[in-house]
C-alpha cells in the first residue's frame, strides 16, 4: 500500500511564485543598476523606463576605471577590512567572556553596550568630529577604522556571544580533561567551531563599513583618502548627475562584497557542531 503524500501542484506553484516574487523584488534594483551602467548616455533619458536598452556600451566602465575611482576603492577596502578584522577580534574576545565567565559588573557592561546602540548617529557626529580633529586624524583612514570598529563592537559582541553560547561547555571541559589549558581548549576546540560566527561577524562589519557614508563624509575631505561612498558623490556635479558612470562605479563596488561573501559563505553553514552531543 502506497502512502506517499502527493503535494498538490497548486501549492508547489504557489511556493515558487512566492520565491520568484521575492527574488524579483530583491534583485530588481541591482538589475536596474547594471542596466543603466550599460546604457549609452544618449539613451538614458529617452529610454528611461524600458526594461532592456536598445544599445549597450562599456564606455561608462572605462571612464570610471580611468577616474579616481580605483583610489576610492582601495581606501574603502583598507577601511572595511581593517574595521572588520578589528571588530571581530575584540567582539570575539568580549563575547567569549560574556558567554563563559561570571564576573562583577557583567550586567552593567551589557546594559551599557545596549545603551550605546540607542543614540542616533547624528547626535554624536559633532563630538566625534571634535575628538578626531583634536587627535589630528582628520582625512586619515585610521580615524574611519577606529570609528567604525567602535560603533560595530556592541552588536558584534552580542552576535559572537550567541555563537559561543551555542557551543556546549562540555566540549571545552572535555578538552581540559584531555590535557588542554583553557587557552588551548579555546584555540583547538572552540575556535574551529566558531568559524561560522566569525564569518558572519566579519561579513556584517565589512558590509556596514563598505557602505558607510555619514562619517566618511564628515571626517574625510581630501580626495586621496576618500572612501567609495564619498567618491560616488563626486559624480554629482553642480549642473548634472552622470548616472551612467555612477551606476558603473556602483556595479564595481558590488564586486568585493560578493567576493567576500562567496569566500565566507562556507563558514556560515550551520550545523557544524552537530554530533558533539546527543540529539
Amino acid at each position: 500500500m502506497s502512502m506517499i503524500v502527493r503535494r498538490s501542484p497548486l501549492r508547489t506553484a504557489g511556493k515558487y511564485a512566492a520565491i520568484g516574487f521575492y527574488l524579483i523584488f530583491a534583485l530588481f534594483p541591482i538589475y536596474w543598476l547594471i542596466k543603466i551602467a550599460l546604457t549609452p548616455d544618449a539613451l538614458i533619458y529617452t529610454e528611461g523606463t524600458r526594461m532592456l536598452p536598445s544599445a549597450l556600451t562599456f564606455d561608462n566602465f572605462a571612464a570610471v576605471l580611468q577616474s579616481d575611482f580605483l583610489g576610492y576603492f582601495t581606501n574603502s577596502l583598507i577601511v572595511s577590512l581593517g574595521a572588520a578584522a578589528g571588530t571581530t577580534l575584540i567582539a570575539a574576545a568580549a563575547g567569549y567572556c560574556f558567554s563563559r565567565f561570571r564576573f562583577a559588573g557583567k550586567r552593567a557592561i551589557i546594559a551599557l553596550l545596549l545603551v550605546t546602540q540607542m543614540f542616533p548617529l547624528l547626535m554624536i557626529i559633532a563630538p566625534i568630529y571634535k575628538i578626531v580633529a583634536g587627535l589630528g586624524l582628520l582625512n586619515s583612514l585610521v580615524s574611519l577604522i577606529v570609528v567604525y570598529t567602535a560603533f560595530n563592537i556592541p552588536f558584534a559582541t552580542f552576535l559572537m556571544q550567541s555563537f559561543f553560547d551555542g557551543i556546549p561547555e562540555d566540549l571545552e571541559e572535555a578538552a581540559m580533561m584531555d590535557g588542554c589549558t583553557r587557552f588551548q581548549a579555546l584555540r583547538k576546540v572552540v575556535f574551529p567551531l566558531t568559524l561560522p560566527g566569525l564569518g558572519a561577524t566579519l561579513g556584517f562589519v565589512f558590509t556596514a563599513a563598505w557602505s558607510e557614508l555619514l562619517f566618511a563624509l564628515m571626517l574625510i575631505s581630501r580626495n586621496d583618502s576618500m572612501t567609495f561612498p564619498v567618491g560616488l558623490l563626486t559624480f554629482v556635479s553642480k549642473f548634472s548627475v552622470d548616472w551612467g558612470q555612477m551606476m558603473a562605479a556602483g556595479t564595481l563596488a558590488l564586486i568585493p562584497s560578493c567576493l567576500f561573501f562567496i569566500f565566507i559563505q562556507r563558514y556560515l553553514v550551520q550545523g557544524l557542531t552537530s554530533g558533539a552531543v546527543k540529539g
Binding site: 556546549p168 562540555d170 566540549l171 571541559e173 572535555a174 578538552a175 581540559m176 580533561m177 584531555d178 590535557g179 588542554c180 589549558t181 576546540v189 574551529p192 567551531l193 557544524l272 557542531t273 552537530s274 554530533g275 558533539a276 552531543v277 546527543k278
Partner: peptide, 20 residues
Amino acid sequence: LRPRDRDIAMVFQSYALYPH
C-alpha cells in the same frame, strides 16, 4: 591543580566529542 595536571579522565553524559 588544574584539570590537566590531575591526570584524570572523564566521560561526559553528553559524550562531548569534538565535532570537527
